[in-house]
């Protein structure tokens, strides 16, 4: 009887150790954590200083987003689109760029461009997402002043 009791205790110990080690093995790798923490800031910084691909102009994405507050008065023509169509251009371009980079690197993301309520546009925000689910989220905010108030660009990476 004592022998059986010892075996039961040993099995209980064994189970405890197996559960303990399998739980601690679920930690994320250091690279992923460090990369993901820095990535939204680096990505937004790079994106907003890069050329937006507009014809006859070296306008950056910051300029293009700024112009979208009042697209009808914008002088930019990007990808053959001008005026209110610049919204579609920006949406398509950013979607492609995000899927070619963050998407290919295996990240879930959400990009939000929030225009001030006073801006003369139909939709006050652009939201590009690829199912941003997960407990941990790292965001970077890039606010800048436009003609009608504060424009917010927020990139969130979920993991």
């Amino acid at each position: 009887m004592i022998g059986l009791a010892i075996i039961v205790i040993l099995i209980a110990f064994g189970m405890f150790f197996i559960i303990r080690f399998s739980v601690s093995d679920q930690q994320e790798s250091i690279t992923k954590t460090v990369q993901v923490k820095e990535l939204p800031k680096n990505f937004l910084n790079t994106l907003l200083y890069s050329e937006a691909g507009c014809e006859g102009s070296s306008a950056t994405f910051t300029r293009l987003i700024g112009d979208l507050e009042d697209p009808l008065s914008s002088s930019l023509t990007c990808g053959g689109k001008s005026g209110e169509d610049l919204f579609f251009y920006l949406n398509e371009t950013l979607s492609d760029l995000l899927s070619q980079t963050l998407g290919e690197w295996g990240h879930n993301y959400e990009l939000l461009i929030d225009f001030p309520d006073t801006a003369p546009i139909e939709e006050n925000e652009i939201r590009i997402t690829n199912i941003c689910i997960g407990d941990q989220k790292d965001s970077s905010h890039f606010p800048f002043t436009g003609d009608y108030g504060m424009i917010r660009v927020v990139l969130t990476i979920c993991h």
């Binding site: 075996i7 040993l10 064994g14």
Partner: peptide
């Protein structure tokens, strides 16, 4: 016999733990 069986199970568990 009971002791032999218990010792056998004990050694099996020991081998399993060492492998793990």
């Amino acid at each position: 016999t009971e002791n032999v069986i218990i010792l056998f199970i004990f050694f099996i568990l020991l081998v399993f733990s060492i492998v793990f």
